[in-house]
Design a protein around this nucleic acid. Structure first.
Lengths: 207, 207
DNA sequence: AAGCCCACTGTCCTGATGGACATAACGCAC
DNA sequence: GTGCGTTATGTCCATCAGGACAGTGGGCTT
């Protein structure tokens, strides 16, 4: 069973290589040629006609997972409807990729926890694991540190946070430094990645 | 993490013991008492008020799987709606039980393949199906700009990107500047947010 | 009272970031 | 050939980010 990543050009996502040693990266056309029964194919949703590609590879006996840079519940439906067993953020950490592999190759379905609610049923309430994980991350922070962390995670600058919380920029830095230390990260970028992937965001615009 | 089978009286399904050595078999009442966070609870759908039981145990932090003697897509829906992560035939072979365990404890969803199409399809239809949104933020970028944008979105610094793409840090800045201009954003943080989660609302509308 | 955690602020300093000027090569279309 | 877009690079500079030193004051526990 091979892991095949289907994307346009060379999307250059070493994360895939990081997650799966023997991963192959191909274009849509090669995908149709070399993907067969038992293979696990990961298809980027920014490819033109990706859903048809997914359906096609599905008929060839492959297991499909759709990756997206902008996950939405709607696209998730489309993916599952086309025959995909999984739908995941393209920038997910390697461990998550392996988890998705595990689930999908065992007849399971995998969709991001934050989209789960919308994918199955209208009132589906399965906001489990990841959300709790998120709580734990924020739990070790103090009130102020959490406020600063969240503001920063929304893309605000130190100055903006300072204005919002009505404190000095220096104080923002102090809290932020504590956040970095406690979470074991080095800068705000890591923070956004940490907070936005397994996110609290039950928000998904979804439209 | 314990496997707990919830059923009325003594349903006597040795298959469960066969699948999981340390499996416990209890009634609905004991279930509420002893099932906690991290446990995997298997609930029979012939119990009166099983969906409320599922929802309750879900709130207690358990992972839920509903078992049925007469699986139907309607009941599957009900199960998932109540917060179950899995829905299987009660008389499935031990290997299948273990597979379901594997999937559901890894944030996956498991429903019988023959019901899959109807469960997912039905949901999809209900939401108005075919809609084309998110014509890629990345589409308007050139090859190199996209590569830089993606690397930055993974949290890499300009220097790291430069090394990775084997170009000068100055060039990275140039591409990045173009990305910012084209996407109408001001810094790398906005970029991560665009690519990571779109318009997250990490709570706090900001007093 | 002494110790600790939290919120807040200060200065100094290094390195990263992004914009505003440029220049120059290449390929492609008109 | 003349333009245009893409890639690549350069210098200069204002700002931002984050760490390394600080310090004060309040509240809580022992």
């Amino acid at each position: 069973m091979a892991n095949v990543f289907v994307c346009s050009g060379r999307d250059e996502v070493p994360r895939w290589q990081e997650a799966f040693a023997g991963a192959v990266q191909v274009g849509p056309d090669q995908a149709r040629a070399r993907v067969g029964a038992g293979d696990l194919a990961w298809v980027m949703s920014n490819l033109p006609g990706w859903s048809e590609l997914v359906a096609g590879l599905r008929r060839q006996g492959a297991t499909l997972v759709v990756m997206s840079y902008l996950p939405s519940s709607r696209e998730a439906f489309q993916a599952l409807d086309a025959g995909a067993r999984g739908y995941v953020h393209a920038l997910s950490p390697p461990e998550l990729f392996r988890q998705v592999e595990l689930v999908t190759t065992h007849q399971g379905i995998w969709v991001p926890p934050e989209l789960l609610a919308r994918v199955v049923g209208g009132t589906f309430q399965a906001l489990g694991g990841e959300v709790r994980l998120q709580d734990d991350v924020l739990a070790e922070l103090t009130e102020r540190e959490r406020a600063v962390a969240l503001a920063v995670a929304r893309g605000e600058s130190n100055k903006e946070v300072a204005r919002r919380l009505d404190i000095t920029e220096r104080t923002v830095k102090a809290h932020l430094g504590a956040v970095f230390r406690k979470l074991g990260i080095r800068d705000r970028m890591q923070l956004v990645l940490r907070l936005s992937h397994q996110s609290i965001s039950l928000a998904d615009p979804g439209q």
